[in-house]
Structures are given as C-alpha cells and as structure tokens.
Design a protein around this nucleic acid. Structure first.
Length: 265
DNA sequence: ATGCCCGTCCGTGACGGA
C-alpha cells in the first residue's frame, strides 16, 4: 500500500497537477491540506474518474483538509476532540477551522492534518498552534487505544531539527523551529508514534517546502515541515519513504512537495 | 535548467502563507 501527504495550496488551482500526480504516483491513500474550498465544492468527480473516493473538510478561503482513497474510506471523523478555534483580532468568538480529518482506508487509520502556522512567537496564533497540537495529541492517544495500523500525516509547520531548514541562522526568533513547537512533536510521539523518515531524492535533507520567492527551490533553500508519524504496526511495515521533489518543479505547482510512504500492507 | 510569489475574495488591494 502506498500512502502520501501533500499540501496543495488550493485544490482548484492545483487540480491539473493533482490529477497528473495521482495518475503517475498511484497512491492508494492521499492526505491533502490547504484545499481553500468548501467541502461540497471539492472536485470529487475528477478524482473519482481516477478511482478515488473523497472525504473533505473545508469551509472556503483558508485551510481545508481531505483524504482521498482507492482502497475504501470509512469511519470519517471531521475535526479533533476538543479542537480549539482561532479568535481573530477584533472578533467576538473563536472560529473553528477545518484542519484535521480522519478516515480508515484499507485497514489503515489515517489523519490528514494542517497545523496552524503560528505566524510569530508573540502572536496569539502561536499559542493557538500549541493548543491545537495538544488537541491532536489527545485525539491520537484516544484512537491509539484501538488496534493499528495508524498514521498522522500532514503539514505540521514545524521543522523537527535545525538540519530541517536550509539555514538555521535565518530563523532566529521565528516560528517553526522553537523549543515549544518541537516539544509538542515530542509529546505527540509520546502517545506511541514514531516519525517515518523520508529519503531525499536529491541533496542531503528531504525538504518538503520551498517559498515561491527568491529562487528558493532552485537554490534548494527549503524546509522539512510536512511529516508522517506512525504507530509501531505502521512503521514496521514501511518499505520506502521519500519526498517527491519533482512535483515542485516548473510553473503552476504548490509550494510544497508530496511525501510518499510505501507499506508492506 | 528546477529560475526571481501565489491564491483568494462582492476582489482591483489586503491578507495569509513560513
């Protein structure tokens, strides 16, 4: 079985690239993030022609996650238990955001997640990011009580180590590399998960994101922030894992590349 | 060549992304 995760930065803007990639890579399960579309406006017919069912969780302009599967799609769960929302400046209330969706596909339980960015360590969005990661840990811990295999895949907006950004000197005081964010990843792992380490197809580190600006991709000035965590049953079945950086080449691409995991399942 | 930001919205700039 092949499972994968990809932040597509608008599923409609990326639809031709998405369909091409599905046809070429033939994942059995694909977790998507940053749909930027209402769930009922997801281009389900187009992916259905390639044999995929879809469960989407989205509400318009921002965020949005989905699971695509050609090996069954059951027990869909939209949102985390006690998931926090974000209270924008001047807003009266917290607003829930579509950032997590879980589904069982071909016997594998997957969660597609889009962790809040954090924006700046002094911004309320950073505390929201940490609260959101706590909720993710709680939901993972709850679901791990039942039998695996189990995986959480997505855009974590955290570089696990200093080596996971092109130049740590450029990230002084920035989000994505702070102790508290990394501690949240360690706590997630503490529920009984391990990271599936992807191999780079080129260069030393398997970056998954390169900013559109400043020739970041040709210069390989990237970040490894799209991550896959699995329970022991899943990680024991991993036969290969890599970042498909070719998907970042050329015009009309997402700024993220897919992470692909092959399983003997 | 992998090449100098992109996507969205009652939208013609502002915001978010990281």
């Amino acid at each position: 079985m092949r499972i994968a995760t990809w932040n597509v930065n608008s599923v409609n803007a990326r639809l031709p690239k998405l369909l091409d990639w599905l046809s070429a890579a033939e994942p059995d399960v694909l977790c998507l993030q940053e749909l930027k579309v209402d769930a009922d406006a997801f281009p389900a017919e187009q992916v259905a022609e390639l044999g995929y069912e879809v469960a989407a969780h989205g509400n318009g302009r921002w965020n949005g996650v989905a699971v695509l599967s050609r090996v069954g799609l059951d027990d869909v769960r939209r949102g985390l238990a006690d998931e926090p929302g974000f209270q924008a400046e001047g807003a009266m209330f917290e607003a829930a955001e579509p950032r997590a969706i879980g589904a069982t596909c071909g016997g594998v339980r997957v969660w597609s997640v889009y962790v809040p960015n954090g924006r700046d360590v002094d911004h309320p969005h950073y505390e929201y990011k940490l609260r959101w990661l706590s909720a993710l840990r709680e939901t993972a811990a709850e679901e791990l009580k039942t039998a695996g295999p189990f995986a959480v895949l997505g855009d974590f907006n955290i570089a696990p180590t200093d080596a996971d950004v092109w130049d740590i000197g450029q990230f002084d005081g920035a989000t994505h590399v702070t102790e508290r964010e990394r501690a949240a990843l360690t706590e997630l792992v503490g529920t009984g998960l391990a990271e599936v380490a992807p191999r780079p197809l080129k260069y030393e580190v398997a970056f998954t994101y390169w900013d559109y600006r400043a020739l970041r991709f040709p210069k390989n000035q990237g970040m490894r922030i799209d991550l896959v965590y699995g329970d022991p049953q899943l990680t024991a079945a991993v036969s290969d894992a890599y970042v498909d950086r070719d998907a970042r080449k050329g015009k009309g691409t997402s700024d993220h590349a897919p992470v692909v995991v092959d399983l003997d399942l």
